[in-house]
């Protein structure tokens, strides 16, 4: 049974149970705007996120939803205007010098385009060992580095002989493996993957997803996995966060979000994604949304999704939607949505 709370998504519900260790990553109320005056763009508006060690969080949303800005905040490349980011309990934006460098080692990135993200004039070995030029003490000594490069190549399913080949000698899938090996070179706790398989062919995409899952098992690395492909997100993620125009509009465990979406946008997104098998996600009930995503320069009043929402009423334009909480298996991270009229929640109004 869902319960309705007042307030915004920043009022993250607290665990009632015994003391839980701090999560690997906790983001609360993060807001980021660009520009000013009439050309002020709100990229993130009070975003909350939690991620435990070794977990995978899927980040879903369409263009302009803020997922790439959020990735940049998580990597420390963009300082939020408001809100807090805690990595293992510490604020990375308060760090300086050595401490900042030490933190940067722990958060790495895998990019979308394996053709643009690798320097064509560096061999695979150079690319993989480059991070050690900045972080000198991670793998000290030329011998040890050579050995570690071979280990990393084998971890991502490449051969020893590949070390001295250049990017143009590799296929897209192999290049993405190099990108992953390079991210792993610093032994990070968290890898932010921004559409890591969307530039790859389907048969190769599965290989790279397998490499990522295997690394999670073997090394315990956590992922923030950004993708527009819902079937990929469903396969790889433990939890899913859905964003729309800079706000988290739904969050929960993967099964909860996919099988029982509360927000009409999540439901529409799932029904719009073409699927092989009609019984998977949404079935036949296709929800056609009106129009396109509004400009982030001009966000609608009240609920920002109301201009396209099939359930919208006057209330949605007048008031910001409340945070609807549905208890999940794990009370510390329940299934939440920002909506006046959530799906499957009619009983709450009776």
């Amino acid at each position: 049974m869902p319960e309705i709370r007042s307030g915004s998504a920043t009022d993250a519900p607290r665990a009632d149970g015994p003391e839980v260790p701090p999560p690997l990553l906790e983001v609360r109320g993060v807001t980021k705007t660009f520009g000013g005056g009439r050309r002020r763009l709100t990229a993130l508006d009070g975003v909350d996120l939690r991620l435990g060690k070794g977990e995978t969080l899927g980040l879903v949303g369409e263009s302009g939803c803020g997922k790439s800005t959020l990735a940049r905040v998580l990597l420390g490349l963009e300082r939020p205007d408001a809100g807090t980011v805690r990595f293992d309990g510490t604020d990375p934006f308060a760090l300086r010098g050595k401490d900042l460098l030490a933190w940067r080692r722990r958060v790495q990135m895998v990019f979308q385009d394996p053709f643009a993200s690798l320097n064509a004039r560096m061999s695979a070995a150079d690319l993989i060992s480059e991070p050690w030029r900045t972080h000198r003490d991670v793998v000290p000594g030329a011998k040890a580095r050579e050995k570690r490069v071979r280990e990393l190549l084998s971890l991502v399913g490449l051969r020893d002989g590949d070390a001295h080949r250049y990017p143009d000698e590799f296929s897209g899938g192999q290049r993405q493996r190099i990108g992953i090996a390079r991210a792993l070179a610093l032994d990070p706790d968290l890898i932010v993957c921004d559409e890591p398989v969307s530039a790859l062919d389907l048969s190769v995409q599965a290989q790279v997803l397998n490499v990522l899952s295997e690394l999670r098992e073997r090394l315990g690395v956590a992922y923030v996995f950004i993708s527009h492909d819902l079937s990929v997100v469903r396969y790889i993620s433990d939890r899913v966060t859905v964003m729309y125009l800079g706000k988290v509009i739904e969050h929960g465990e993967t099964e909860d979000v996919f099988d029982r979406p509360q927000h009409p946008y999540t439901a529409a997104l799932m029904s719009a994604a073409p699927v092989l098998d009609a019984s998977y996600a949404g079935g036949d009930r296709e929800i056609q949304l009106k129009g396109e995503i509004p400009s982030p320069f001009d966000i609608p009043s009240g609920c920002r999704f109301r201009t396209r929402c099939p359930r919208a009423e006057d209330l949605c334009a007048a008031e910001a939607p409340p945070l609807v909480v549905r208890r999940a298996r794990e009370a510390s991270d329940p299934h939440t949505a920002l909506c006046h009229f959530p799906l499957e929640a009619e009983s709450a109004w009776a």
Binding site: G173, S203, A206, I236
Partner: peptide, 23 residues
């Protein structure tokens, strides 16, 4: 192989039956 590579049929935590190599 293509059909098997679609994550929609996969179970989370189990490897996808990928086609080895590339075209």
């Amino acid at each position: 192989g293509l059909l098997d590579s679609v994550p929609e049929h996969a179970v989370r935590g189990r490897p996808l039956p990928a086609v080895p190599g590339s075209p």
